[in-house]
Amino acid sequence: MKNNIKHHLTDQILMGYSAGALPEAFNILVASHLSLCDECRAHLASFDSIGGAVLDSTPGALATLDDDSLAAVMARIENTPTASAPVRPKRRDTTVPAPLCDYIGDDLSGVKWRNIGMGVRQAILPTSSDATARLLFIPAGAAMPDHGHNGTEMTMVLQGAFQDEDGYFARGDVETADADVNHIPVADIREDCICLAVSDAPLRFKGLLPRIVQRFIRI
């Protein structure tokens, strides 16, 4: 795929995805980026290989099987047909990466946006509650409210681009912001910016949104 991606997933996040340690919300973003980025996909293969090596040679983790274990499995494979590879239907509009389609549908037209002020809109995706995933719509040239983070926040651009203190982020790029980051992403003037943002702790807004409002909009 010929995406010109400059900001990639961190080693820690790739390892967390490989180990199966990430919350569902983060897995959506990681799988979406991997769908567009061959480089990270290849790195993930390395991390999966570490998992394979650890599984294969950690003597302390060998469990004793039940007495009839092998016999039970032999009986089960007797009746198990060959499984086919999962096939996702071909899509016409590929703005939305396939893993995200499983949450919002084929394209962005079905997204139920809610205004959160300053022309910025968001839609929360249904995921497990240990982290939050939301789509953000920032009008061309507009700014996200100034905010800091209590945990880790990752933002992946789906359409348009934004700029903040850390750099310029375009389609496919991922910004990873930790607790010490305070930033004001501003959407590129040429196009409305749509992002997938995930966080494992509520954002801290400075002034613009009172905390009581934060509770209602779950940002």
């Binding site: 199966g20 919350p23 897995n27 959506i28 990466p97 396939a98 893993p99 499983d102 497990s128």
Partner: peptide
């Protein structure tokens, strides 16, 4: 164990 979906990347 975690009763979660596992989003997987698009097949190549």
């Amino acid at each position: 164990l975690r009763k979660q979906r596992r989003p997987e990347p698009e097949e190549l």
